[in-house]
Design a protein around this nucleic acid. Structure first.
Length: 515
DNA sequence: CGAACAGGCGCC
DNA sequence: AAAGGGCGCCTGTTCG
């Protein structure tokens, strides 16, 4: 069922029954409307069955989540049923678990009353958005992201199983057909045991490793690698090597490959707005933690290229634009180098650490000493962070530039340790959440630019401030240019005429690990 | 017995 | 050298 609505969401005609998905695709071609969907998951079916990617949408459930949080109700139910309940003055039931109700609610012969629910909730949402242009932009970007996420799952990230397998064999030794420990892992474990005098130790049990070091005269607080590096014992070197390889084996080894890669594509699901700050989360295969060690397996198909682009120093640039402290981000060049060379009295690495620490809320340690310098040179930027931290400590809410709202304080937040923790959280929130919405706008802009330029390229991966596209080789340079333009456009869409730049320098490569 | 938690580490 | 923001996933361990 579909129904035509005007800009404010009022029906222009009675509901219509469409014969099939082809009719939806036809409407999209002829009129390119903004489709109001209960949830973007609906888009996946249209895409897989007709190949049509709708240009614009409004995701009722994602927008409900934004509006509920803005009213101080972060985390409260925001599914369609909950939104209807709220509209009717009833207390919302908890949302159905993710994945339980994946039934398409549009483009389908769904019940008429669900269509009526979508129309009613959308109309109420439009009434709120009409008074808040920034939130309207956020709603549009979040909805576009919902489409992108579904499309990325359908497209899949090109993943060469043979390359991955070679890489694992190189690192771990030949795969045992019996499922036993790979040879190099076994050898390293033997070395560690020998270094402990031959007594058996399960290296995967931190408690056992701790006891083994204690017997050898080293009292450790944990078995974290940085702590191990600080002591002098022959077991340390093979143990660190073991940990690194064991991590590769368990997290991205042959079992991972068999589970998550099919027909040379990795297809995780992405959860738009799945993180408090508006970053995406993912389900299946740890898509947002692909270690550098296996990125060589991400390779373009023959005749295709990867276009890889990440935003350079996004968060400090966002802070500069948010606060109007433009001296913090003077141009497109490396921001930390500029900071280090300008009378800061520190090298690039220290300058970077100091700035990042300021955004994360660290006040002690080596970086803390530069905090005074930062405050003097960038009073507006540091003031914005400190205001956000104070708001958190006092139990107030903070918002991103476009209006994404942090969760309310929990009971007990006024206890000193909890208040400081919440201050660090809200201090970071304003920057991280605004950076996340810049990335959403980038995705939305880029997606539409790719369509109108008819490049044949597909968005196949997105990770906080980085995009990866799979493009026919002959249009890859054009795609790279579209990325550059979309990055600058996203900055303007968020911040208007700010002098702060948000540069992306895409690289056209065959494999993800190429610089 | 499975669920829940803790330790550890990968990514931004 | 090693502390601060946000995640997901694997293993070992403990709880109910």
């Amino acid at each position: 069922m579909i129904q035509r609505l005007d800009e404010s969401g009022d029906p222009l005609a009675p509901p219509e029954k469409l014969p099939d998905l082809t009719a939806v695709a036809e409407l999209e071609r002829a009129e390119t409307p903004r489709w109001v969907l209960a949830r973007s998951r609906t888009h996946r079916r249209l895409l897989t069955e007709t190949g049509v990617e709708v240009a614009r949408s409004h995701d009722v459930e994602l927008v409900e989540g934004l509006l509920v949080a803005a009213a101080g109700g972060f985390g409260q139910p925001h599914g369609l049923a909950a939104a209807v309940a709220r509209l009717e003055g009833r207390t919302p039931e908890p949302d159905p678990p993710v994945g339980v109700d994946d039934r398409p609610t549009l483009f389908d012969t769904g019940p008429v009353d669900e269509l009526a629910d979508i129309v009613a909730v959308h109309r109420a949402q439009q009434a709120v958005l009409a008074a808040d242009p920034r939130m309207r932009l956020l709603a549009a970007a979040e909805s576009a992201a919902g489409l992108v996420a579904e499309e990325m799952t359908v497209h899949g990230l090109p993943w060469r199983a043979d390359v991955h397998d070679e890489l694992l064999t190189e690192a771990l030794g030949p795969r045992s057909s019996l499922g036993g420990r790979p040879p190099k892992l076994a050898a390293l474990a033997d070395e560690v045991v020998a270094a402990f005098g031959g007594r058996a130790v399960n290296l995967d049990s931190p408690a056992e490793v701790l006891r083994a070091f204690a017997r050898a005269g080293h009292e450790l607080g944990s078995t974290r690698s940085w702590e191990l590096k600080g002591i002098d014992h022959p077991a340390v070197a093979p143990l660190l090597a073991y940990k690194e390889l064991a991590r590769l084996h368990t997290a991205h080894g042959w079992a991972w490959l068999r589970t998550w890669v099919h027909n040379n594509r990795f297809r995780p699901e992405y959860v738009v707005g799945g993180v408090v700050s508006g970053r995406w989360a993912s389900r299946g295969g740890g898509a947002l933690q692909i270690p550098r060690a296996v990125r060589a397996a991400v390779r373009a198909d023959p005749g295709w290229k990867l276009v890889v682009a990440d935003a350079a120093q996004l968060e400090p640039r966002v802070l500069a634009a948010l606060s109007g402290d433009h001296a913090l981000a003077p141009g497109e060049d490396d921001l930390y180098t500029a900071l280090a060379s300008a009378e800061f009295g520190a090298d690039r690495a220290t300058a970077k650490l100091a700035l990042i620490s300021a955004m994360y809320g660290q006040t002690s340690g080596g970086a803390g000493q530069l905090l005074g310098t930062l405050r003097r040179r960038f009073p507006a930027a540091m003031g914005l962070l400190e205001d956000a931290a104070r708001a958190g400590e006092e139990g107030r809410l903070v918002r991103s530039h476009l209006g994404r709202t942090c969760p309310p304080a929990r009971p007990g937040h006024e206890l000193p340790a909890a208040a400081r923790a919440r201050g660090r959280f809200t201090r970071n929130f304003v920057v991280q959440a605004t950076a996340a919405e810049w990335a959403l706008v980038l995705l939305a802009e880029l997606r539409l630019a790719l369509r109108s330029a008819a490049t044949g390229a597909q968005l196949v991966f997105f990770q906080h401030d980085e995009v990866l596209l799979h493009s026919p080789a002959e249009t890859a340079d054009d795609v790279a240019e579209l990325v550059r333009v979309a990055a600058l456009t996203a900055g303007r869409r968020l911040f208007g005429a700010t002098p702060v730049r948000f540069p992306m320098r895409p690289r056209v490569v065959d494999a993800y690990d190429e610089r």
